[in-house]
Amino acid sequence: MSLAPSPLLELQTVSLRIEGKLILDQIQLSLHANEIITVVGPNGGGKTSLIKLALGLIRPSEGKVQRRKGLRVGYMPQRLMVDNSVPITVERFLQLAGGRRAPIADTLARVKASAVRHAPLQSISGGEWQRVLLARALLRKPDLLVLDEPAQGVDLQGQQEMYHLLGAIRSETGCGIFLVSHDLHLVMASSDRVVCLNQHICCSGAAHAVARHPEFLALFQNSSAEDIGIYTHHHDHQHD
């Protein structure tokens, strides 16, 4: 091991064009183990493309995406569309990722989805899907966890639980977490860095704990809200 560990993932001045249209413009980003980066930005700002680049699903038009050798990636997409013709339960779906001896019961309990263990995959709700997909990603014991809008369609309570869980997983396993959120202002408080993406990186910085914000404290009736953070954008430029 070298003294300065190499990043799990590094985007070196990456640009992406699709049919001539510039989608991402010279993105420079690196993610280390034990680090959480949240990417926020408007729809059409290139968040999904960034995730696909990071996962190696698409190639950049310019620049380089460097992943550490032997990197184990756990990916949590937004939701899967599984054809009704496939007879498959949540448990079997998870076995496909982790193998038959995988700690499926424990992992499901961890993401609070034990109730759907024997349910057909097509019958579970949007919120349950996200937990199941997170369980699947965790079963792969990833070095890098990539999440596409993990808190979408979930209420603030659920969002807080999800963020709390992700924070705990990071502390336990030391994995890097790369997550994308459509919410411009409410982010995971334990994010080490928040990156605002609109074709290029508009700004990036630390999230401030929501806990200090009186209005959010009121919203949670003084229950613990420290898992959700607020990100104040400090843009140094304007788009027309």
Partner: peptide, 18 residues
Amino acid sequence: WRALLSCILSAELSAAEG
């Protein structure tokens, strides 16, 4: 079998998993 089944359920997820 397992890899094919994985692909059928989600090609994108499988590709991301290598």
